[in-house]
Amino acid sequence: MTDPTRTPNTTANNSSPADTEEMEEYAGGTIQSRHGYIPMWLLVVYAVLFIWALYYLVVYWGGLGPGRV
């Protein structure tokens, strides 16, 4: 199945890797996937969540446990 929003590139010299990649289909064509890139904003979200997890680990799970002063 082809994506109607993408226009095919007719010249071989100007084609990008995304244009030449094959679309993978699963579940009889219901699910389609292709290799892509990870957006920068998503990498920033991953980094912020990791830093928050380290902060939470140290502040709320560190120390002597229940009854600490």
Rank of each mutant, 00 (worst) to 15 (best):
14 N>L: 12
50 F>S: 05
58 V>W: 04
56 Y>L: 02
40 M>Y: 10
4 P>I: 05
58 V>A: 00
61 W>K: 15
33 S>R: 06
4 P>Y: 09
37 Y>W: 09
11 T>W: 03
37 Y>A: 08
66 P>M: 06
57 L>M: 13
30 T>L: 01
44 V>L: 15
36 G>Y: 05
48 V>T: 07
31 I>T: 05
3 D>M: 08
44 V>Q: 09
43 L>G: 06
46 Y>V: 09
29 G>C: 00
56 Y>F: 08
7 T>W: 07
19 D>K: 04
48 V>Q: 03
21 E>H: 10
1 M>Y: 14
37 Y>H: 14
49 L>F: 14
1 M>D: 13
56 Y>M: 04
42 L>N: 02
7 T>C: 05
29 G>W: 01
1 M>I: 15
6 R>P: 12
25 E>W: 03
35 H>M: 01
48 V>R: 00
34 R>C: 05
68 R>Q: 15
59 V>G: 07
49 L>D: 08
41 W>N: 08
56 Y>T: 08
43 L>Y: 06
11 T>I: 04
15 S>W: 10
46 Y>P: 09
3 D>Q: 12
12 A>G: 10
43 L>H: 02
45 V>K: 11
46 Y>A: 10
59 V>D: 12
45 V>R: 11
10 T>D: 11
64 L>R: 13
12 A>Y: 14
60 Y>Q: 14
59 V>N: 11
57 L>A: 14
34 R>E: 07
57 L>Y: 15
47 A>E: 02
32 Q>E: 05
10 T>V: 08
22 E>Q: 06
52 W>H: 03
2 T>R: 14
43 L>E: 07
65 G>N: 12
48 V>M: 07
8 P>V: 10
50 F>R: 03
53 A>V: 02
43 L>F: 05
37 Y>Q: 13
9 N>C: 05
2 T>H: 12
14 N>K: 13
3 D>C: 15
37 Y>D: 09
48 V>H: 05
52 W>P: 03
57 L>N: 15
21 E>Y: 06
68 R>W: 10
36 G>T: 02
6 R>Y: 12
28 G>L: 00
55 Y>W: 00
43 L>D: 03
18 A>M: 12
6 R>M: 08
25 E>D: 01
64 L>I: 10
43 L>C: 07
29 G>E: 01
10 T>C: 08
46 Y>D: 11
11 T>H: 11
20 T>E: 02
30 T>P: 00
54 L>A: 04
64 L>T: 14
4 P>K: 13
58 V>M: 02
8 P>C: 09
32 Q>K: 15
65 G>E: 12
18 A>C: 14
5 T>H: 11
14 N>W: 11
32 Q>Y: 02
43 L>Q: 05
52 W>E: 03
67 G>E: 04
11 T>N: 12
58 V>P: 05
6 R>L: 12
28 G>K: 00
52 W>I: 00
47 A>H: 04
33 S>D: 06
38 I>G: 01
47 A>V: 04
44 V>M: 13
22 E>W: 00
65 G>L: 11
56 Y>K: 09
22 E>K: 05
67 G>N: 08
8 P>Q: 15
66 P>N: 08
33 S>I: 02
42 L>H: 06
17 P>K: 02
7 T>A: 11
58 V>Y: 04
59 V>R: 15
58 V>H: 00
33 S>V: 08
26 Y>S: 07
69 V>Y: 06
13 N>Y: 09
